[in-house]
């Protein structure tokens, strides 16, 4: 394998990692501070993707889709928080898992009713279409670079938010001493709502920007949520930096597994074994990493650090 191909796989992994991070960041914030497992978080990503794709298909404008999708998902998230999730904060994990699983069933079917059974494919916006020459033989799609850029910007933004603002201070305090924050007179209900809105915003953004890179379809939320849950456990629940490191790590591991494994093994073993190995790496690397991390460090890599 030449260096260009290797670099391309790293970029692909990075891009997959940052989109994963957008989902995982909201999830880990909500779990870390509110103590609430929201399996339904992936539905918000799906909602963002569908709304953006529908509007882009009808109007032809990706940007309009993005502009409508993100606030809509925030509204949806707030509605869910006030109507259902609030009642689950004091319940045990089991009830939270099942209640949010029920919501997945509902929203998946609702998406089928509203948007139909066929997946949506949308075009990249004209501004970000095409590829850019990086070096040597490596041409890389501008859109994917832009996605990486969005991920980096969000990561920096979240760092600023948690490290430098009042809200961030409450988030950091809440992640380790939830009850104490309430006892100090902070309106915990409003803090939870704000965190939820932030998580929904990131999920909506993730959904809207992955539209041009993959089919928008029912069930996409589940694939994302499982991976995002795995990632936040690897990173240590509640830790944004853990989620970032784990997302990128998992993204790159999957991407390299898919391409590096065939390259490394094609001379050693026969073709069907190569297909088996690369399939195995691509589909299970996240879980293998999770198992390995939890066995060595059961609380996750960055537990206790926002």
């Amino acid at each position: 394998m030449d260096f260009a191909l290797f670099a391309e796989q790293i970029l692909n992994g990075l891009q997959a990692g940052v989109t994963l991070f957008l989902t995982a960041a909201g999830l880990t914030l909500v779990f870390g501070i509110v103590g609430f497992i929201n399996l339904n978080h992936g539905t918000l990503v799906m909602a963002g993707a569908y709304i953006a794709a529908k509007i882009a298909t009808v109007t032809g404008s990706f940007w309009l889709g993005l502009a409508v999708a993100v606030p809509s998902v925030v509204v949806l998230g707030l509605l869910l928080e006030t109507s259902v999730f609030r009642r689950l904060y004091h319940r045990d994990h089991l009830d939270q898992v099942l209640a949010t699983f029920s919501l997945i069933l509902f929203f998946n079917e609702l998406a089928r009713i509203v948007f139909g059974r066929l997946p949506y494919q949308i075009d990249k916006p004209a501004l970000l279409a095409g590829a850019v020459h990086l070096f040597g033989d490596l041409y890389y799609p501008i859109y994917r670079l832009a996605v990486i850029g969005v991920g980096v910007a969000v990561a920096i933004g979240l760092w600023y938010l948690t490290a430098k603002t009042k809200l961030g201070m409450l988030i950091r305090a809440g992640s380790t001493h939830r009850n104490l924050v309430g006892a100090l007179g902070v309106n915990v209900g409003r803090l939870f709502l704000a965190i939820f809105a932030l998580g929904a915003l990131l999920a909506g953004l993730a959904g809207a920007i992955i539209g041009p890179m993959q089919a928008v379809e029912v069930g996409m939320g589940e694939n994302i949520i499982i991976l995002a849950l795995v990632v936040i456990v690897i990173g240590g629940v509640g830790s944004i930096r853990g989620a970032l490191v784990a997302s990128v790590f998992v993204g790159i591991a999957e991407s390299l597994g898919r391409t590096l494994v065939p390259y490394l093994f094609e001379k050693v073993v026969d073709t069907s074994t190569v297909t088996f190995l690369s399939g195995m790496f691509a589909s299970t690397s996240a879980y293998v990493i999770l198992a390995a991390v939890l066995i060595v460090r059961p609380q996750g890599l960055f537990a206790g650090k926002v």
Binding site: F31, I37, H93, L229, T284, Y287, L290, A291, L294, P298
Partner: peptide
């Protein structure tokens, strides 16, 4: 392996292992 963890992490690690077994079952 999974019982080294508890709470939320236990839920997730059992899910992760099940996904690995699912991969085994999906083999050609």
């Amino acid at each position: 392996l999974a019982l080294r963890t508890s709470g939320f992490n236990f839920i997730m690690i059992t899910l992760a292992f099940a996904q690995m077994v699912l991969f085994l079952a999906s083999l050609r």
